[in-house]
Nucleic acid binder design. Structure first.
Lengths: 128, 128
DNA sequence: CTTTTTGCAAAACCTTTGCACAACC
DNA sequence: GGTTGTGCAAAGGTTTTGCAAAAAG
């Protein structure tokens, strides 16, 4: 529980994320927030994204391509990763998962606290 | 479908992976194969691990911590990631998943070809 | 002899960090 | 005034790559 003071840069980062339905990387956030804060640094963007994610105000999404993505929508939902173009998007259809309900169970002595599922394939745009 | 010639280094890498039940990183493979090939380079290890993964002879496992892991066991099974020590291990108990059976379906115009699920929590060793 | 693989080193890539100064409260 | 946040630049960690020499077929 870190103590936080207000910062205009952090607000701008939050505002930008709010406008996006995809899941921008830190660098994309940086490129966009630069129009309002020409001198903002990538380091500041990372520090704020990490802080906001730690506070639970945004979600950090890692689909295994080595880049962190961030999402204003913190409600639990599945993601779809296009193997051709790399886009990451929400899956709106409710995907039933037996993995839900595993929380708190122990398997082989390991306590399960959560799980991550994502689907991959070819996105609508790449299928054309 | 790359053309491949035999290489002793690649065989050694494969042999090492075969002996491991955990999911070594490229660097751990490198450290171990060095005993047989003192002059082998990390680059060679990466090239071979990627080649073997592309050929489907080993599995590449990415749990979102920014490091690639490799597994001799290519059959579908779930993984457990310890949030404290970072260990990655197989879940032997069969975890029923509704995500199976999604392959081939289309959602929002996106063709689903596969999915990844991993569980995280505290491992038996860290719970002591 | 031709193609693939290797070793080495450098580069690429993403992310974190140290520090002095500015902003916040 | 004390604390947190910022900008800058440097460093950190992982993975990829260019190239000449070696190995494989």
């Amino acid at each position: 529980m870190p103590v936080t003071k207000y910062s205009r840069q952090r607000e701008a980062i939050m505002d930008f994320l709010m406008t996006r339905r995809d899941h921008p990387t830190a660098d994309i956030v940086y490129q966009n927030v630069k129009s309002a804060f020409p001198h903002i640094s990538l380091g500041t963007v990372y520090r704020n994204l990490n802080l906001l994610a730690d506070l639970g105000r945004i979600a950090r999404i890692r689909v295994g391509d080595g880049v962190d993505r961030f999402d204003y929508n913190t409600t639990l939902h599945c993601h779809f990763v296009c193997r051709k173009c790399g886009r990451v998007m929400d899956l709106h259809t409710d995907v039933p998962s037996m993995a839900n309900g595993m929380e708190g169970r122990s398997i082989d002595g390991n306590l399960i606290e959560g799980h991550v599922t994502y689907f991959y394939g070819s996105c609508s745009r790449c299928l054309l």
